[in-house]
Amino acid sequence: MDTVAAAQGKPTLQIGVEPVGRAEVTVSVHGELDCATADQLRSAITELLNRGGLTAIGLDLRGLTFIDSSGIGTLVVAQRICQQVGVRMRLTAVNAFAARVLGVVGVDAALGLPATAGAPAALVGAD
């Protein structure tokens, strides 16, 4: 975590990328995904797509503590771009907070969140 930004009250976002297979990665998002930090996730996904060789990107949102419309928009646009270039992007793990917000907004299914994700037991990788 960026302790300087946190100490100054600025939103922080940590993004980790782990290879899952030869052509798949998981992108872990921790912190606040909002208008101040969404560009970081956008840049990370763009970098992955530009390097090529990927068939799938999984998003792990278990560490997400906040998301606003900019963050949601970033996820939706990333999904569309990935689809256009032949890379499958889907949610691989979410916490109850993220599942609820994405469900209320109506983008949960488009991002690959199972329809039963409202039930805590159904959350993939749930806390």
Score class of each variant (00 low, 15 high):
1 M>L: 09
1 M>Y: 07
5 A>M: 07
7 A>E: 09
8 Q>H: 05
8 Q>L: 04
9 G>Y: 13
10 K>H: 14
10 K>D: 09
10 K>I: 05
12 T>N: 01
13 L>S: 13
16 G>P: 00
16 G>Q: 08
17 V>D: 00
19 P>G: 10
25 V>A: 01
28 S>Y: 08
32 E>W: 11
33 L>F: 12
35 C>I: 03
36 A>L: 11
37 T>W: 13
38 A>K: 04
42 R>Q: 13
43 S>V: 01
46 T>Q: 13
47 E>S: 13
47 E>R: 14
50 N>S: 12
54 L>M: 03
57 I>N: 09
59 L>R: 04
60 D>T: 06
60 D>I: 09
62 R>I: 12
69 S>I: 02
70 S>H: 10
71 G>M: 05
73 G>K: 01
76 V>M: 11
77 V>L: 15
78 A>G: 02
78 A>D: 05
78 A>S: 13
79 Q>N: 12
79 Q>D: 04
79 Q>G: 02
80 R>L: 12
82 C>K: 05
86 G>H: 02
87 V>R: 11
88 R>W: 00
89 M>S: 08
90 R>W: 03
92 T>V: 15
97 F>M: 14
98 A>Q: 10
98 A>K: 08
98 A>P: 07
101 V>C: 00
101 V>H: 00
103 G>W: 06
106 G>E: 07
110 A>H: 02
110 A>Y: 05
114 P>R: 10
116 T>C: 00
121 A>R: 04
122 A>H: 12
123 L>V: 15
126 A>E: 05
